[in-house]
Design a protein around this nucleic acid. Structure first.
Lengths: 112, 112
DNA sequence: TTCCATACTTACTTTTTGGTGAGTACTGTT
DNA sequence: AACAGTACTCACCAAAAAGTAAGTATGGAA
């Protein structure tokens, strides 16, 4: 998806953001990493219904877009960890607003 | 998609919000409606690359989830308009944060 | 020596999402 | 009389996203 399309697609903040964060898993991964760096196996335990393929795929994607960074400890058995970059941290206000919205929605619409 | 799945799906604010707002078009439609109520034909002009099918489909979806309301003027030729509901209005802080994030991302990553 | 855990990759299939092009019923315009 | 605009619907197809199941190399524990 990355750079090429960013140049072509009609650019607006909403499209930019949904391109970077859209899909079923990216925000969930970023949210878990907000607290502390985690290894893939820890993420898998925190988000049990993600498949291994999607986890590695999304970790790669988020790394490519610079929202997270990968650290390889070069050990055997393999050990890597992912942490938010500084720009990755800046999605936290967005997640906070999603939380506000979801709580309000549940109160007003789902259990009025 | 609606109500049934909300009960089944593991519930968390991020999932709730992406279920309600996910996809390519919903946020763009809501953003346009934030300024004023609009007829479908006006929305189509404001978002030229949406297909007519997706427009009516998403308008129906957003109506079903109570984020927008439909008003039928009962005229011929047909005339309807859509406006944000009060809960629909409450996504505006979310969009504002998407905007903050996108601008920051463009500055720091795309043109550093 | 069989099994588990690690962090992946790959091939394949299913599901979801989005797009195309046509049709409907009615009116006003040219 | 033909055509455009209105708000749709429908059948069909293409593309994208996600899921499944297996395999890779390594080392340590049972």
């Amino acid at each position: 998806m990355e750079r090429e399309e960013f140049k072509i697609t009609a650019r607006c903040p909403i499209r930019t953001t949904t391109e970077l964060l859209g899909g079923k898993w990216k925000l969930l991964i970023l949210f878990q990493l907000a607290q502390e760096p985690l290894r893939p196996s820890q993420l898998k335990r925190l988000i049990p219904d993600i498949s291994e393929k999607m986890l590695t795929q999304e970790l790669k994607n988020l790394t490519d877009t610079n929202l997270i960074a990968r650290k390889n400890f070069g050990e055997i058995p393999p050990r890597v960890e992912y942490r938010l970059t500084s720009i990755g941290h800046s999605i936290m206000p967005l997640i906070a607003e999603m939380r506000n919205f979801a709580i309000k929605y549940e109160n007003e619409i789902l259990n009025p």
